[in-house]
Simulated scan of single mutants.
Amino acid sequence: MKICTSIPETRKELEKLRSDGSRIALVPTMGALHDGHLELIREAYSHADKVVVSIFVNPVQFGPNEDYETYPRETDRDSGKCRSEGVSLIFSPDASEMYSDKKLSIEIDELNRHMCGASRPGFFEGVLLVVNKLFNIVRPDVALFGQKDIQQFQLIRKMAEEFNHDIELVMVPVVRANDGLALSSRNAYLSEEERLAAPLLYRSLLYIEKQISGGVNSPKMLLSHQRSELEAKGFKIDYLNLFDLQTLQPVERLSSRQKAVIAGAAWMGKTRLIDNILIEF
């Protein structure tokens, strides 16, 4: 396994990896790898011959009061996990390598007005900027992302379409702990007591899904009740709502054959948790 920190070195090594006609998969990460990331790597082998993992804590997607400085960085541990999974190459640049002379940015018109985009201004612009750069540097045949960050996936999908990236995009289902909590590098911030309460967000989503599947097609009161229930358990709600899967706009009334996502984001102590469940009628 090669570990590259510069763009020219990475491109040179990728030429070698492609020399035998191999399909290349990219798994973009910010490191602090957990079983959710490893599932992306394993799934990548169903779509490609060789896997590249990027590890880069992207400064331009963090707001001024967010956790860029404290975000977990576990380089040696991450490298060991990648090596165990048979990864061919890790691309692990620093910020000066990725943004040596940054003058341009990406603007989003619609898809970030709700969900995480509403409360994290500039976040998705930063995500799209770095993913666009990674696509251009690695030029993968396929790239894999987790469903937990579903708004991110839909935005990347739209970016790839509009910027004409000839890349297959794969969304891998949420990987969960035994108690249902969606795996996240930020779960490490949770105290023992907070960790016990954190799966309640997922259980709330499951309850909403059950009620909708049972015939509720105008879930306004149902959603309001679940927000109150979570707040009573110590959560500070960012959002908990039903969104159209394609437009990411809130859905007040479900219609036939509509694809939607029940999605929530909430603070438990100092940790922001996100989760979602896909539904279709």
Rank of each mutant, 00 (worst) to 15 (best):
E161S: 14
D244S: 11
R227S: 10
A188T: 14
G122S: 10
D67S: 09
N136Y: 01
R42W: 00
K148W: 02
P59F: 03
I277Q: 13
P72F: 02
M171G: 00
S119G: 11
E231Q: 15
F153G: 01
L240M: 11
M221Y: 07
Y239D: 05
S96H: 14
R253V: 02
P93G: 10
M115H: 04
K270Y: 02
G126H: 07
V52A: 09
L111F: 00
G21F: 01
S224W: 05
P173F: 09
I237W: 02
C116I: 00
L205P: 00
S6N: 08
Q211G: 01
N276S: 06
R253D: 00
G234T: 11
V57R: 09
S204F: 03
S19G: 06
L242G: 01
G117N: 08
P199F: 10
F56P: 07
N178E: 15
P59A: 12
I274L: 12
N58E: 10
F124T: 04
L181Q: 08
M115L: 14
Q147W: 02
F91V: 02
P250C: 08
M268P: 05
G234L: 10
T247N: 02
S218C: 11
D35T: 09
L17V: 06
R195Q: 01
M1F: 01
S213N: 14
I277R: 15
L14I: 13
E229I: 12
P173N: 13
W267D: 00
N58P: 06
V130E: 04
D166V: 07
L230F: 07
V131F: 03
E9N: 12
T247S: 15
F56R: 12
E110K: 14
I24S: 05
V60D: 03
P64W: 08
V60Q: 08
L104R: 12
D149A: 06
T5L: 03
R42A: 06
L201N: 08
D109E: 14
L17T: 09
I150Y: 13
K50D: 03
S46Y: 06
H165T: 03
M221L: 09
Y68C: 03
S88N: 08
S46E: 12
S100G: 09
M268I: 13
V216A: 01
L205W: 10
M30G: 07
Y189H: 11
I106W: 02
D179A: 13
N136M: 04
D76G: 04
L104A: 11
V170K: 14
S100P: 08
F281D: 10
L222P: 06
I41S: 07
